[in-house]
Design a binder for these strands. Sequence first.
DNA 1: GCAATAATCTTGACAGTGTCAAAATAAGCC
DNA 2: GGCTTATTTTGACACTGTCAAGATTATTGC
Lengths: 200, 200
Amino acid sequence: MSRPARYHHGDLHSTLLREANRLLDEDGIDGLSLRKLAERAGVSRTAPYHHFRDKNVLLCALATQAFSQLDEMIGRQLQGEGSKERIQHFVREYLRFATEHPEQYELMFGRTIWKSGEPTEELKAVAYRSFRNYAERLGSQLQGRLPADTDPLRVAQASWATVHGLCRLLIDGIYVNREDIEAVSEQSVALIMAALAPST
Amino acid sequence: MSRPARYHHGDLHSTLLREANRLLDEDGIDGLSLRKLAERAGVSRTAPYHHFRDKNVLLCALATQAFSQLDEMIGRQLQGEGSKERIQHFVREYLRFATEHPEQYELMFGRTIWKSGEPTEELKAVAYRSFRNYAERLGSQLQGRLPADTDPLRVAQASWATVHGLCRLLIDGIYVNREDIEAVSEQSVALIMAALAPST
DNA sequence: GCAATAATCTTGACAGTGTCAAAATAAGCC
DNA sequence: GGCTTATTTTGACACTGTCAAGATTATTGC
């Protein structure tokens, strides 16, 4: 039998997170309204405010979740010794992450949180951790192959910006052709690797 | 003496564009509401609708203006023969363009228009023209220096994505240090140029 | 077990948004 | 001067985030 409607939901916090992610996928970041969310959770308009101070905090929670996934993916894909193939595979995985969850990606890196809103300390922590993770692992993959005057951190920042730029162009709807993007990313990796000393 | 308030504004169309740009600079893209805009222009809430079908069309008009400026800048900076210095100077100018008018840049490339809204034909035309302009000029600057298996168009796409990615990270508030970004961009250019054959 | 406290949820309200419909006003044209 | 068209206005609607005050349930101290 279906549970009777109780005054106390019981597990509203995690229900809100789950349904918010669903709403994000379906209606996009603009379509995610707290009122729709509350209705989905079977609860009144202002109930969510007892679990998330405001909409910004809710969005930060979603972004934090997504960053954890990204961080986990980085760790999984960029382990072991480096090679052009491995790095290209990572880039494809990154593109896949961004395009399969475009609204989450937008939340993670977009101005909704970072500019208009105010990123949570928790979000900032996991975001910076993700990038540090990427920089360190890429650095060790390119170990000894960079020109002497080249700071590995800068290479990490530059390469991340490139992949990120491609993702944004795709996600924001400026580029629509997924295959083009993949070709461009492979070109980028090839070009950078060509500038490196061969691996020993 | 100050003009009396007339029923017909006289030049509302261009006044709206001008004040919209001011509002954009002051309050950001989220702060730009048609009602505030109408008030600034000294006109009632719905008057703008007779000059712009809806908010999306207004924003497209602003973005179109900005793209024209960008296109003009590309033509100015990327003429003549190519050199590492010239390209690095162009990148700095691009960064300057994006950071001096961050809200316009957001409008030009952001999802507000391209994903959530519907880009005007006019906007699409000038946007594509800008990129074609960039691709052609960069291609001629790198003439004969690219590896045989390297499509100049791909290089243009990749390099644009990189600079664009940097701009987004800066504009969206993820990176805050302007000098870091400049160092990263110089690193990127140096890395790509290192992969090229020396100019004849 | 029971009272006090805290957590949770609801209804009502407010200011703000984009945009439509219908009416009012002005300008241009024959 | 009268007709048509372009502008502009007022009124309205549905939507948004969020606050305040009250209702309900859970938890804790004794």
